[in-house]
Nucleic acid binder design. Sequence first.
DNA 1: AGTCATGACGTAATAACATGA
DNA 2: ATCATGTTATTACGTCATGAC
Lengths: 140, 140
Amino acid sequence: MEHHGEGSISSNTDYMRMKRSKRHTPRQIQRLEALFKDCSHPCEQHKLQLSRELALSPRQIDVWFQNKRAQMKTREERYDNPKLIEENDKIRSENITIREALENVICSTCGGPSINVDCDFDEQKLRIENAQLKEENFNG
Amino acid sequence: MEHHGEGSISSNTDYMRMKRSKRHTPRQIQRLEALFKDCSHPCEQHKLQLSRELALSPRQIDVWFQNKRAQMKTREERYDNPKLIEENDKIRSENITIREALENVICSTCGGPSINVDCDFDEQKLRIENAQLKEENFNG
DNA sequence: AGTCATGACGTAATAACATGA
DNA sequence: ATCATGTTATTACGTCATGAC
């Protein structure tokens, strides 16, 4: 109900404090955002200046910046999450590829089907087993 | 801003002292949380029942569940993010370990220092290179 | 048939407030 | 006091179902 489209229409002058909407005007927000880009914690002076300039109480300026900082934080997280998941999947599949390569190794000198690897004393084997176990631990 | 003064009569119980606190009482929240665990989208019946039971308007019940769902969503994300980063690191290190193992392979039959792997025609080699490139792509 | 309005209900953003460190 | 964080309430926008034309 009541979709007012005010924002784009009355652009001629400053907004009369539209009775209905408690939102800040686009102009106010634009100004606030501009400052926020430079500094997310405005000093007292900036705060008071904005207060006069935008006809908002200092308290409102304060609240706006607090809310904005919180918003940015969660917005970052929402953005990082899918990125991490994708990256995760890719590395995992690379992992499998290399593991397969390791099993299909063929010796170049004896040309034989040398399926197996080096010594048992070496830590190498242990480390690989270890990695395998940790991997299973995640998936399980 | 002056909002409603709603019938927050706090019924018979103890929480009279918070005069104009807009917070819901612990008892109310406890009850709401309990139902939320079972279903995050309560039907009309449940809503009305809660409304009577907790002396909150149906609208308030509605709003509480909406806010709760949003809260849960961001809470999940906050929790997943560090988990994903940790997982990511571990898989990455496994990756390196296996890669090293692949280079230090020694043939078991000829006992030689068979450093190298199989044929050039095989897709194996390509796949490994591919993985390597993709990996670099991430880090760069 | 369609299409246009309207309402019910959802999420997302936001303003204001409350609290603890 | 200021700030991060969480809570309550409102607004904006989207979708879907229903109904009149």
